[in-house]
Computed example of a mutant assay.
Amino acid sequence: MSQFYISEGITRRSGLSFLWSAAALAFAGAAVVLKASHSEAQTTGMERRGDRRSGRDDRRTERRTGRTTRREERRN
């Protein structure tokens, strides 16, 4: 079997080296593609999250203000 590789000019070591290089390039390419698509989705998601957060902050402020007002009325 090793004679087959030697006669073709490709050794096991160079064949594995080539496979590892191809796998590394594929992994790096996939990471770049995922990062680019993720950043676009993140922007839209961040806008929705900001809207939800501002709504929660407003409701919390109203609750706390109302609570303070009720406490002051009871104390007087």
Rank of each mutant, 00 (worst) to 15 (best):
M1H: 12
M1V: 09
M1S: 08
M1R: 14
M1T: 14
S2Y: 04
S2I: 09
Q3L: 15
Q3C: 06
F4C: 10
F4E: 09
F4L: 14
I6K: 07
I6C: 07
I6V: 01
I6D: 12
S7Q: 12
S7F: 01
E8G: 03
E8T: 05
E8Q: 09
G9L: 02
G9M: 08
I10W: 02
T11I: 04
T11D: 07
R13A: 12
R13W: 10
S14D: 07
L16A: 03
F18I: 14
L19S: 01
L19C: 06
W20A: 14
W20N: 15
S21Y: 06
A22E: 15
A22L: 15
A22S: 12
A23F: 12
A23L: 14
A24K: 14
A24S: 09
A24G: 04
L25V: 05
L25P: 00
L25E: 09
A26Q: 02
A26H: 02
F27W: 00
F27D: 07
A28Q: 00
A28I: 13
A28L: 08
A30I: 12
A30Q: 01
A30S: 10
A30G: 10
A31H: 05
A31R: 06
V32H: 03
V32E: 03
V33S: 02
V33R: 00
V33E: 01
L34G: 08
K35N: 09
K35M: 06
A36V: 08
A36T: 04
S37M: 07
S37D: 11
S37R: 11
H38A: 10
H38S: 06
H38G: 03
H38P: 00
H38I: 00
H38T: 06
S39N: 09
S39C: 07
E40Q: 10
A41I: 05
A41R: 01
Q42L: 08
T43W: 01
T44I: 12
G45L: 06
G45Y: 00
G45I: 05
M46Y: 11
M46F: 04
E47S: 13
E47W: 09
E47I: 14
R48G: 12
R49C: 08
R49H: 06
R49W: 10
G50C: 04
G50T: 10
G50H: 09
D51E: 07
D51G: 10
D51Q: 12
D51W: 07
R52F: 03
R52Y: 04
R53Q: 05
R53C: 12
R53F: 11
S54I: 15
S54D: 15
G55R: 13
G55D: 11
G55T: 06
G55K: 13
R56G: 13
D57V: 13
R59M: 08
R59L: 03
R60C: 02
R60E: 13
R60N: 15
R60K: 13
T61S: 10
T61I: 09
T61Y: 07
T61V: 08
E62P: 04
E62M: 11
E62R: 12
R63Q: 08
R63H: 10
R64S: 09
R64E: 10
R64C: 07
T65D: 03
T65S: 00
T65K: 01
R67T: 03
T68C: 00
T68E: 04
T68F: 01
T68L: 08
T69M: 02
R70W: 02
R70Y: 02
R71V: 04
R71H: 02
R71M: 06
E72A: 15
E72F: 04
E73L: 09
E73K: 07
R74N: 02
R74M: 04
R74I: 12
R75C: 05
R75Q: 12
